[in-house]
Amino acid sequence: MSATGEARQGVGVGASPRARVRPARAARRRVSLGQGLLYAVTGLILFYLVFPIFVVIPVSFSSAKYLQFPPPGFSLQWYEKYLTRSDWTGATWLSVQVAAGTALLATLLGTLAALALVRGRFWGRDLINAFVVSPMIIPSIIVAIGIYFFYARIQLIGSPFALVLAHTALAVPFVVVNVSATLVGFDERLEYAAMNLGANRRQTFLKVTLPLIRPGVLTGALFAFVTSFDELIVALFISGTGAVTLPRKMWDGIRQEIDPTIAAVSTIFIVLSVLVLVSAELLRQRSERLRTAIPTQVE
């Protein structure tokens, strides 16, 4: 990577905390009316976006028998129900498996596709790129109907494997976009250098390219996992009775038994999503730190 490229990245993530604090403090001293207004509006928007989530969390600890806000008292009964009923735990476990399979397959395919789409010089490249990314834009319901008719014909309805395949199609764009972003800033001369030093194409990819695009690959994998884990619409169509995922189970639950178990599951869901995003960020920072680390002792 070029020195300037690294420097650019360094400003964002590698800069020392001390260097970042100083200008922030200086700015706080000079908060004007306009800035105050900006902060207030921003705060309101954030509150509006996050508020529904904060409703779900107290309801999940409710002592009431029905969905009710504000909750009359505190209880862990709904968590107990979620954890002890096999239809809930089974759906959760299936979702984890499907999401893991999706993440694995989508990361593999998406990374390879990104390599071809960023590096390749071939006819129809932009067209293929648009095609690969299209599941991000096309309404899920349309994708779901298409997949449903196709899978029904080849008798794949109700199989976890079918869910992995369908979710992979939805998740690949996230991997392609993330990996492409790291590849665009990638200095190909590093690969030239590796080959010049004696590394064949496979060795070059494993020892130079992959370590350097790893943040993009990992982020893509996590996005793929989450895409599958909270996917409902396709699951509604193709999970049948044999492969009920957690979102599908929640959907069924809210229609059939209106009790706060849904809220408990939702809360767990939220915590899990936050954990995934935080770990994605930590992974990225760690790889960034490794790359920019300043060893304290030099022999």
Binding site: D187, R189, N196, L212, R291
Partner: peptide, 13 residues
């Protein structure tokens, strides 16, 4: 064949 590149092309990781 050894080669030195303009931007050095040292592996940053």
């Amino acid at each position: 064949i050894g080669m030195v590149f303009q931007n050095y092309a040292l592996f940053p990781h």
